[in-house]
Design a protein around this nucleic acid. Structure first.
Length: 431
DNA sequence: TCTGCTACCACTTTTGAATCGT
DNA sequence: AACGATTCAAAAGTGGTAGCAG
């Protein structure tokens, strides 16, 4: 997990993250600021990272209404949140591996959580546009509960089975390239494949802590700031993608998810047709589907392009032995996001699951310092409800979507949407 | 008895240091 | 001496499974 200590050595260890103080903003009514607090937030631990980010001297022109309370279990889900105020005008984010996420989502994505921490697969890989090439930004990711229910696998589908466990302290993963210039972030897709999920509430490694058998959704946050602990910030935008919702588990419940993971994740190659556990593969998946996977770029074995670097890496990283050998750090080929879905779509658009064009330069962690322009920005955060792109899954959904607690996801116009966020400083540096 | 969690396994990929050639 | 390519071993990541606890 990422270690901001290296970026902010002066901070020492053990500092926590928290939202900035809107109350300190002279033109921001304290009562209004209070209203923007997260409803499920008790006593946020605020300091350093985000509290050091100063509010811009302007306030919101028209603060949005407070998000509704979560509907009762079984109620009709709330309509998708409209696009909120965006304090980074013109900035947009797209999910690079959207088709892969859709494929998993059509079955009901499950993410393994372990005491030691488990990576997400698929990983969140996004492309960003509209940034100021000279300004510096932080890229962050967190995972928030979707609703207030605990879930249970009922043989064929996930069903609510009671009230959710008390919410755990929020943690946020900071992309190791942060802070970087807008040009850097826009040069290639940004991958969060190193994010690890754990069910250990005492986790000392800074992994994102989740409850098992709960439904979660990742969020990506973009913060304009010169430094990780910058005293000035120039805006915030947050994004979420409906297809990235998942249920955390300690062991896979749905065998279809297991087979999708085995088919798509290079690390699970040992469980494919030649692996020691190939019997299950053959048992669960009819031969024509096996062939579909084997021939499909969803199957990493057939994925073109070479391994990805830390920014590009993520879902399908296995080099194709049929292709010319590429340098280890060569960037894979960028592909258009394809319409349609399922293995057929992957066959039609095989490159859709890879990152940047190979001609693009690889990640350079030590790019030159670019001073933050320091331009003022509205004191707001944005939460964008990104609707799925063209194409829909051909697979039936495993279970109907659970009611959404929109306030969990939309947050409010606080500069940063992770109240009580905890930045663990004791984990092992990745870079 | 059932459900959920943990530790361990064999396998694969990734990573980085060492080595070699230009 | 510097740089890039290659090699190789260790580390890390994967799902399966047996066993344990509640």
């Amino acid at each position: 997990m990422y270690h901001p200590r290296e970026l902010c050595p002066s901070l020492g260890t053990g500092y926590r993250l928290g939202p900035p103080q809107p109350v300190t903003e002279p033109s921001f009514p304290p009562a209004l600021a209070e209203g923007y607090r997260y409803p499920d937030l008790d006593t946020p631990k605020l300091d350093c990272f985000l509290s050091g980010i100063e509010a811009a001297p302007r306030t919101l022109a028209a603060p949005p209404p407070l998000p509704p309370l979560p509907p009762a279990l079984g109620a009709e889900p709330s309509p998708p949140a409209p696009e909120a105020l965006h304090s980074l005008p013109g900035v947009s984010l797209s999910l690079e591996n959207q088709e892969l996420w859709k494929e998993f989502n059509s079955v009901g994505t499950e993410m393994i959580i372990t005491k030691a921490g488990r990576r997400m697969f698929p990983a969140c890989r996004v492309s960003v546009t509209g940034l100021d090439p000279e300004a510096r930004y932080l890229f962050l990711l967190d995972v928030v509960p979707v609703d207030g229910a605990r879930y249970r696998w009922q043989g064929r589908r996930w069903e609510p089975s009671g009230k959710a466990e008390p919410r755990l302290p929020d943690r946020v993963y900071i992309h190791p390239d942060s802070p970087a210039t807008g040009a850097h972030w826009m040069r290639q897709p940004v991958s969060f494949h190193r994010v690890k999920l754990t069910n250990s509430t005492l986790d000392p490694h800074g992994h994102l802590i989740l409850h098992s058998m709960h439904k979660y959704q990742p969020r990506v946050h973009l913060v304009r700031a010169a430094q990780l602990c910058s005293q000035h910030w120039g805006g915030v935008a947050s994004f979420r993608f409906p297809e990235t919702m998942f249920i955390s588990v300690t062991a896979y419940q749905n065998p279809r998810i297991t087979q999708l993971k085995i088919a798509a994740n290079p690390f699970a190659k040992g469980f494919r047709e030649n692996g020691r556990n190939c019997k299950r593969w053959a048992l669960f998946i009819p031969s024509f589907i096996q062939q579909m996977f084997i021939n499909s770029p969803l199957c990493a074995h057939n994925a073109p392009g070479g391994p990805c670097d830390s920014t590009l890496g993520g879902d399908v990283r296995e080099p194709d032995p049929e292709q010319a050998p590429a340098p280890r750090e060569a960037a894979p080929a960028l592909a258009p996001l394809c319409g349609g879905s399922s293995a057929e779509a992957y066959l039609l658009h095989p490159a859709a699951f890879h990152g940047a064009p190979s001609h693009l330069p690889t990640r350079n962690p030590s790019f030159p310092q670019a001073p933050d322009s320091g331009r003022p920005a509205p004191y707001s955060a944005a939460f964008l409800e990104l609707q799925p792109g063209p194409g829909s899954s051909g697979c039936p959904a495993a279970a109907p979507p659970a009611p959404f607690a929109s306030h969990f996801l939309q947050g409010g116009p606080l500069p940063l949407p992770y109240p009580g966020a905890y930045l663990d400083m004791g984990s092992k540096p990745m870079y």
